[in-house]
Computed example of a mutant assay.
Amino acid sequence: MSYTKISALLLFTMTALHWETTIGFVVIDGNCNDVIRLPCKATNQTKKFRYVIWYKVLEIENSPIIKKRGNEVTYFNSTNNLTSVFLGEKETLELHNVQPSDSGTYRCYLAANAGGQNYDSFIGLNISECVQASTVYPSTIIATDSCLAVIDLSTSWAAVSFILISVTKIILCIIAVGVCDQVKFRTRRKQQDVRRNTNGKSSSCKD
């Protein structure tokens, strides 16, 4: 086989491997505080293995998260800031109360039995930013209600005061009219008495 054919075969093999890796890599999107389940695709290759271990792929090295050998489960004190980690069915990695810091690439590695082949698979995780709920201050609501109560009370008192003032004015007008009538009546009566006395004196002088 010529050197050109060997080079072409190697290039084809590398392209095929790269294509398979790109197609097989999946990114899961999640929200803050969700429960996320990352499947281990390596279990599709074999169900017999010595142990399984999950890593978080970092820039320098892979950081171990959890390891299972038979019925024994080991948790690692990694720097992933993962709140709660569990292994589910088919070695699925369960992450509870996820945070944006949990975003990244995860690796599931299956260590084969003696004479077997090791398998691993990769999966991406993208967690959205946490949104904080707006805080409601009860004191503000109470103050607003108090202001409304004061405004309603002031309006009521203003209406009552206006009615009392109006009634008072009417009563004073009636009293004033009555007094004026009494004064006029007494004045006329005095004038009539004066006239009578004057007429009486005139008639006696003529006699």
Rank of each mutant, 00 (worst) to 15 (best):
V26H: 12
I36V: 07
Y51E: 07
R37F: 12
A42G: 05
N62F: 04
Y55H: 10
A42K: 01
Y55V: 05
V57T: 08
K68E: 06
N62T: 04
I66W: 03
K41E: 10
I28G: 06
R69F: 13
K68D: 07
E59V: 02
I28R: 09
E72G: 02
K47E: 00
D29S: 15
Y51S: 10
N31P: 11
D29V: 00
F25T: 04
G30L: 09
D29P: 14
N77S: 12
K56C: 12
Y55T: 03
Y75G: 02
C40F: 06
F76N: 09
Q45E: 08
R69E: 13
G30R: 03
N71W: 10
K56M: 15
E72D: 10
N33C: 03
V52C: 07
C32D: 05
F76I: 13
V35Y: 09
T43S: 12
V26A: 09
I53Y: 06
V52P: 06
T46P: 08
Q45M: 07
V35H: 10
E59F: 07
W54F: 08
T46E: 00
C40M: 03
F25H: 10
G70Q: 03
D29C: 13
V52Y: 01
S63F: 15
I60A: 09
F25D: 08
C32P: 15
V57A: 08
D29W: 10
D29T: 05
A42I: 02
N77F: 09
I53A: 04
G70S: 01
Y55D: 01
I60L: 07
E72W: 05
K56H: 14
K67N: 06
R50M: 11
I28T: 04
I36S: 12
I28W: 08
P39R: 14
S63H: 12
P64W: 11
D34M: 09
I53E: 04
R69M: 14
F49A: 02
Q45L: 06
C32A: 03
R69W: 07
K67P: 13
V73T: 15
